[in-house]
């Protein structure tokens, strides 16, 4: 009798454990929301960074190791933007991370600005594998969603059809959004923009905007007077519509340069409780407004 009860308890506990949602840790907030949409009730997400944080400057913390130890899946940006994760992964020492437990979302993306020459410190480049800000092209979000969906199905094969369904629902809604944005951005083909840091090449390529340059020469160093003058000359020669600056960069340069371009502050991720659409609308809406 006792053996039967014990056996029953074990069965119940193990089914209970199997029924427990997948614990997913992501690097950025929009990745977390994406995983939530793909996984629905079968996933529980945690994020390692804040929405308005400079991903180039993240300092690994011990609290992150604790989060990683509890994770079934780790979703990362890749392309060396989240290098700081590597030490954490080793520290967390989970066998699953070396199997299918890490999903690098850059794998399905066609990369821009991949260097074709050996790099050294003189170039001061902080993107040695190409430009890593690929998720700012809304079409890429669909590619990322598919990868998430497939990996979830791999980790929980019995729920594969549920995940596939979630992806279908998302895809339908997202295609409508993509068409809407295509229409809004169509009149801005060939428009000129400046950015503080080179975070928008994928966005610009998608909507055929022309990026005339960056305010930042090297990360963390204020622009030299010669560079500011160069930008002033550029802005006199071509009608720059907007200057894009992330919230963790100084705005003074954009504000001094602007007239009549508009300074647009944007985050590379979504605010708490915001939608995935808001990530792109914060770029598109003010840009469309700026051209009137």
């Amino acid at each position: 009798m006792k053996k039967n009860i014990f056996f029953l308890m074990m069965v119940l506990i193990s089914t209970g454990m199997m029924a427990a949602p997948l614990s997913v840790v992501t690097v950025t907030q929009e990745q977390a929301l994406l995983v939530q949409k793909m996984g629905g009730r079968e996933v529980k997400t945690e994020c390692l960074t804040l929405y308005n944080q400079d991903l180039h400057q993240v300092q690994a913390r011990p609290s992150m190791i604790i989060k990683l130890k509890k994770a079934d899946l780790l979703v990362r940006v890749g392309m060396r933007l989240d290098d700081w994760l590597d030490a954490l992964i080793l520290n967390a020492s989970k066998a699953s991370f070396f199997d299918q437990g890490v999903l690098d979302l850059s794998k399905g993306i066609t990369k821009l600005q991949v260097p074709n020459q050996p790099l050294d410190g003189r170039l001061g480049d902080i993107h040695p594998e190409g430009n890593p800000h690929y998720w700012l092209d809304p079409y890429h979000l669909l590619v990322m969603a598919k990868q998430v969906s497939e990996r979830l199905a791999l980790l929980r094969p019995e729920k594969a059809s549920y995940f596939a369904e979630q992806y279908q629902i998302f895809e339908k809604e997202w295609q409508i959004q993509l068409k809407k944005w295509d229409q809004q951005m169509a009149p801005l083909k060939g428009a000129y923009i400046l950015t503080y840091h080179d975070s928008l090449p994928y966005f610009a390529k998608r909507y055929q905007l022309v990026i005339l340059g960056q305010i930042e020469i090297k990360p963390g160093i204020p622009p030299t007077p010669a560079h500011l003058l160069h930008l002033k000359t550029v802005m006199k020669a071509k009608p720059v519509k907007a200057i894009f600056v992330e919230p963790y960069y100084p705005k003074e340069h954009a504000l001094t340069l602007q007239q009549p371009a508009k300074t647009i502050v944007f985050s590379t991720s979504i605010a708490p409780n915001a939608s995935l659409e808001s990530l792109y609308e914060q770029l598109i809406t003010p840009l469309v407004k700026a051209s009137y």
């Binding site: 963390g220 204020p222 500011l228 960069y249």
Partner: peptide
């Protein structure tokens, strides 16, 4: 600064500022 998202840029601004941008 480790708790703030501004960090690196705050750090260099704290050390050398940017007199060019004085209003």
């Amino acid at each position: 600064m480790s708790k703030s998202v501004l960090q690196h840029h705050q750090l260099s601004a704290m050390l050398v500022g940017d007199i060019l941008m004085i209003t």
